[in-house]
Simulated assay, not measured.
Amino acid sequence: MRLSLASIAIACVAEAQAFSDSSPFILFSTAEFSAPSENAQLQTRASVLRSVTDILSSCPTDRYLLASQPGAHAVDIRDEQSSCSMPNLCRAIASERVHGRYGVAEVVTSSGAEHDGNPQVAGFQSLADSIQSACQSRGKSVGVDEVKLAPLSGSVDSVKRRETRANNDYELGKFLDALDGDYTVILYSEPSGPLVYEPSFQEPVHMDLKRQLDPLVLRSRADSLPDNRPLFEKYQFFTPGIFMALIVAAVMLSILGVGLKAVASLQVSYGAFDKEMGPAAQKKQL
């Protein structure tokens, strides 16, 4: 149940990856708060900032951790197989201590909304000042820590990007483990560029343009070139038919040899074929 709530909270679903220049936004807190009315997974940065400002206006906790992950996309947190790519972050979101979660998978920049004169939507970097102002107005002294992780670069499947993401998750996990009491964690990103996908095959496929030449020309070219290959590479001496004929011949010769040996082993006395001249022979004649 906790993992399913975490997956809803981070809202980094695979089907929401249509905008490669967008970035995810994640907020989770030990304090309970009402979910914003705008819960779409594709929002402008100004809309997300207004929702977050409303959540933080009551100064719900005493500690705040703002983590910036430049160049991150939704797939860097939850991949196409819906498995968590940042286990320490997902474990912190699924913690039993967390009671409030809010996440947007695709946050896009809206130039019109970010130049409407409202200082609260100037950018995610203004969240620290907004938290300090909201808590000071309520007479609370809070601690706001900001962590800037290493930017992610390269294609989504590149080894360098995966290593950087794993190191960032490890560093973020150390800050999350150090949190005690009541706290609020915000993870945001400013995409550095469009997301690049590497092809599934390893080697590039080259399609060469083949010219159709006259068979007579090809034959004349082949005949003009000397064939310097070895004898056993140039000719095939043992075909399947020849090999089968040799086996049959060997069997027949072995049978013939056994027959000749049997005939040669016969022993007959010299007198077996002599004509009998005695009284016994005359009785047989009568």
Rank of each mutant, 00 (worst) to 15 (best):
M1H: 13
L3E: 15
L3P: 10
S4Q: 13
L5W: 12
L5M: 09
C12D: 08
C12T: 12
A14M: 00
Q17K: 13
F19Y: 09
D21F: 11
L27A: 08
A31L: 11
A31C: 05
A35W: 04
P36R: 02
S37T: 15
A40L: 09
A40V: 04
T44Y: 07
V48W: 09
V48F: 07
L49K: 02
I55C: 00
T61V: 05
A72D: 01
H73V: 10
D76N: 08
Q81K: 11
M86Q: 14
L89I: 00
R101D: 06
V107H: 00
E114G: 11
D116H: 00
D116C: 01
N118Y: 02
A122D: 10
Q125K: 13
L127I: 12
L127C: 03
D129G: 12
Q136D: 13
Q136K: 13
S137Q: 14
V142E: 01
G143C: 07
E146W: 04
A150P: 02
P151G: 00
S153W: 01
D157A: 07
V159H: 11
K160V: 13
A166V: 08
K174F: 08
F175N: 12
T184Y: 00
I186W: 06
Y188F: 10
P194A: 10
P194G: 13
E198D: 15
P199D: 13
Q202T: 15
V205H: 09
H206A: 11
L213C: 15
D214T: 05
R219Y: 10
S220G: 10
S220I: 07
S224T: 12
L225R: 13
K234H: 05
Q236D: 08
T239M: 06
P240I: 00
M252F: 05
M252I: 02
I255R: 01
V258F: 03
A262E: 03
S269D: 11
F273R: 14
K275S: 13
G278D: 15
L286S: 12
